[in-house]
Simulated assay, not measured.
Amino acid sequence: MLRIHGIARSRAFRCIWAAEEAGLAYEVVPVGFGPGLKAAMAAINPNGKIPALEDGGLLLFESLAINLHIAGKAGAPLMPVGDDAARTLQWTLWAATEAEPAAMQWAYNTYIRAPELRDAAQGAAGAEALAARLAVLEAHLAAGGPWLLGQDFTIADCNLAGVLYGAWANGFDLAPCPTVKAWLDAALSRPAALAARRQREG
């Protein structure tokens, strides 16, 4: 059984969603944020952060790497082969390096930090940067789709939609990117996503 260390109101949400999509048995080992986090996670993740995964003797950290492992256990179509395996890695890394930094800059200065700690200029810069990335995604999805790699939902969709969940759930303006909005709506309404969202939102 997969053991996901973390809480659903963290990046562990992505891993819970991936496990649901894969149809694999899992348990969530509840480790939340706070002063004891580093000590609680030291034996599992040397970075002292959540999430982390135990799969037998394998220990993994980094939520998107965990998801690639989970998808690999499930196989196709969740984890494609051939050229689509490379495209899955491409979009997963794009989620981490292009989409997430901008999304988090906006999020920290819009709804995560206490109001007195928010920087409106930083929030606006994050929103502008995220909008530029979403324009790239809009063009890609509009040219193909309905999913990132075509007709099949893959872990690439789970990973990128998981990264964008906070923006989607907290009112980021998706009106300029209707195809992205439709893709996010569809991804986050899948039965596996709803099961993960119930843990996060409930």
Rank of each mutant, 00 (worst) to 15 (best):
A129S: 08
N45F: 06
F33P: 07
L59M: 13
T92W: 06
Y165H: 15
L89I: 14
A18S: 11
A102D: 06
K73I: 11
A76P: 10
K181M: 10
A143D: 11
W91N: 10
W147C: 05
D55C: 07
A39S: 15
I112D: 03
A143C: 01
I112K: 03
L134A: 03
L59V: 12
G150M: 02
A40I: 00
V29N: 12
L188V: 01
W168K: 14
P178S: 04
V180E: 10
L78Y: 02
D157I: 06
L78H: 00
L58M: 11
E54T: 15
I112E: 10
T88M: 08
T88R: 07
A192K: 11
A103E: 15
A125R: 12
A18W: 00
A156M: 09
G202N: 01
G202F: 00
A18L: 05
A43F: 11
L141F: 06
F61R: 12
L160S: 04
Y108F: 15
A125F: 03
P30S: 02
G56I: 10
T88H: 01
D157E: 02
T179F: 03
P146H: 03
A65T: 14
Q199W: 13
D55V: 05
W94C: 08
F33L: 14
P115G: 10
R3Q: 14
N47D: 14
T88W: 00
E20D: 12
P46C: 09
L148C: 02
R190Q: 13
P46V: 04
R14Q: 14
F153H: 15
G72P: 04
P178L: 01
G6E: 05
A161P: 07
A42T: 14
F172R: 07
A12I: 05
Q122I: 11
V163Y: 02
